[in-house]
Design a protein around this nucleic acid. Sequence first.
DNA 1: CGCACCACAATTTTT
DNA 2: TTGTGGTGCG
Length: 815
Amino acid sequence: MGNYENTKTEYENAFVEERKKHIEMQFMHLNEMQRQAVLATEGPLLILAGAGSGKTTVLINRIYNILKFGCGSDSDEIPYYASEDSADIISRGGDEADRLCALHPAQPWQILAITFTNKAAGELKTRLGNMLGESADDIWACTFHSACVRILRRDADRLGYSKSFTIYDTSDTNSLLRQIIKELDLDEKFYAPKAVAGEISRAKDALIDPPKYIKQASFKADLYHKKVGEIYARYMESLKKSDAMDFDDLIFNTVKLLDSYSEVREYWQNRFRYILVDEYQDTNNLQYYLVSLLTNDENNICVVGDDDQSIYKFRGATIENILNFESNFEDCRTIRLEQNYRSTGHILEAANAVISHNLGRKGKTLWTAKNAGDPVELFVADSERDEAQYIVSKILRGYGSGGKWRDYAVLYRMNAQSNSIEYALKSHNIPYRIVGGTRFFDRAEVKDILAYMCVVLAPNDNLRLQRIINVPARGIGLKSVETALEIGNDNDLSLFDVISHAQSYEQLTRPAARMKEFANMIGELQSFAACNSPADLFDELIEKTGYIRMLQEKKTKEDEARIENVMELKSTMLTYMNESGDSTLEGYLANVALYTDLDNYDNDSDAVTLMTMHASKGLEFPYVFIAGMEETIFPSSRAIGEADELEEERRLCYVAVTRAMKNLYLVAARQRLLFGRTNCNRVSRFVDEIPDEHIKKNIPKGFAYKDPATAYFPGGSRYSGAYEPDNVPQYDTLPGKSYSYSKPKQKITPAPAAKQEKPMLQLELGDNVRHKAFGIGVVVKMMPMGGDYLIEINFETQGSKKLMLKAASLFLEKV
DNA sequence: CGCACCACAATTTTT
DNA sequence: TTGTGGTGCG
């Protein structure tokens, strides 16, 4: 500043000052720190954004600022068109002022905003669209992987791939590795495909290619690394033959491309004037290289992250990226967003307290202007089943008093925990949705159909051809495929080439006819594809291959679900084509590998959400349950004893806790049936890290697990007030499935109940009722539930609603 | 070759 | 507990 004052005229200083003020005025809806982050457009910027601190808002507004005012808020430059009265004009505001304040504004396509998940990218796009209209379409708001795909589609041929390379997902990778390991006659136990995949992934993260890996391994004495080097080399060869890249390759190859071809690098560096990276704490080494390579001399790189929310170290994310950002990028500015807009006081304090037990943080303390709210609640249940019951009764209670199902989320450490909770929700007819788990695109039938389509487009994809060549069974067995593969390897032909001319190889005389038939079918599908829409091809394909018939003939429940999945796949294809404007099958197949279930998650439907804590990152819910707050579950057994991993678990806890807006319930079970084994665990250490003033603990003393009633409500427990005895879940009403411990013989008596002011309405199925708010309807379902009933009514005008009879009695009458 | 059965394993998180 | 992969039989 001081320098300029001497060299600039007074009006110039006034101009710069007015310009900054004017731009600043556009962002008065933000808090001071958020605004600073928005206005600091030039040079490296690190935004440490705590949970719920409005970081997406900041990103959006920052992009808006860059597009509208360029570097106007962050520069002392005086444009040629500024004159002596410019400052005056600006101070009067209006369009003219806006125009004067704009300084080298960026074009939408000069902005690259990288996120971690498709969902986050989609959200960013939507919000940018709302703010900027159509011009937002030109902004690259995408994930690391999809950004790389776009870059590679342009120049992949320089690396020896075609521009229409396919992408192998994790399971493709694993099966290819398994195959290679077998071919090399190695023991699958010792060279577990998954472990090898991890090793290769780590190598790529360190920019080590197979020759380099083999060289490094040659200095070591151990055989393992030498063999892995061999596998690695074969794996890459095989990928290249199939014109395929795995997830890591997408980034690795992009880095390679940018690094080795200066004209490519310059092209992209010139194009992207401003780069923003979200969730920077989750980036790995490769991604760091990528970002550095894309950044030009202007260094307009802005990263947003929260070191306390780094929970993906296990897959190579290195927290160092964020911890070292300031030293990696010179003249970096750092801004902390510490005001939380999401949670009430007790919840936030609990989160702060837990995370403060970690060492090596950037240090950051969230605060809120909200009131303290309710303390966090801890409940120690009897078993995993009671845990679920507790959660369900809490949810029912909240729903009964006017809540929405979608306000509730149940978080857990691992997917296997969802079973008991699902069961309880199901038996109470509570709508719920599970995010994650066995992913849609990992289902065998989905992979099969996709593999078929890939093969139709690119028959040389050996891996996918192998997958479907005998599904449904058509008499081409493992042995035949193996021989065909060998022939292919020897003559440098693809598997498809070999089976197309199977009759010319005497080793294949037996299956030759069937192979030929199969190859012909693929050929027919290819010609069909040439002059029909992808949707029609889809139908033709599942017919002609007999796939649907195979499922229909089996007739089990699972197979019905599989048919549904296949149809669902068709609709995701159509959705993709609609939304992306890309109606080619190639485009769809090229992108489908980057799809995940998370993308299908829509918050429109009114349902309780079940997911892992990892999957919950970035989301928020009014009421959050964290299930399984037990040592060995959370923190997980493999983290205990490892300082680093324990810290990661603690960060995970921090993430989970900060999802809650109004109420947070922590639930533990004294005894838990998991993987067919019953364990007893202590309550999680993370619970103890929450100071007493922020948590209300309910640990039944007179523990008698044969009598759930006393387990829930020990004499004098604080819960007796919150829970009417008649709301005690009655296990006898639960259908099916017996559990390992004996049920109480006698029914739990609904104690001094029934002294209500208004008697419960007597209803039967099929009764017509009038509701004060919803109008006329008919009772379609009644579920007894702890002395009350959960009823479902189909209303003429309002659709179907689920109500608790007792609470609804006030508004209901029979007609 | 295909199916059924059995043994065994592992059992987090994701592009 | 669930799922997977391998084996053995028809």
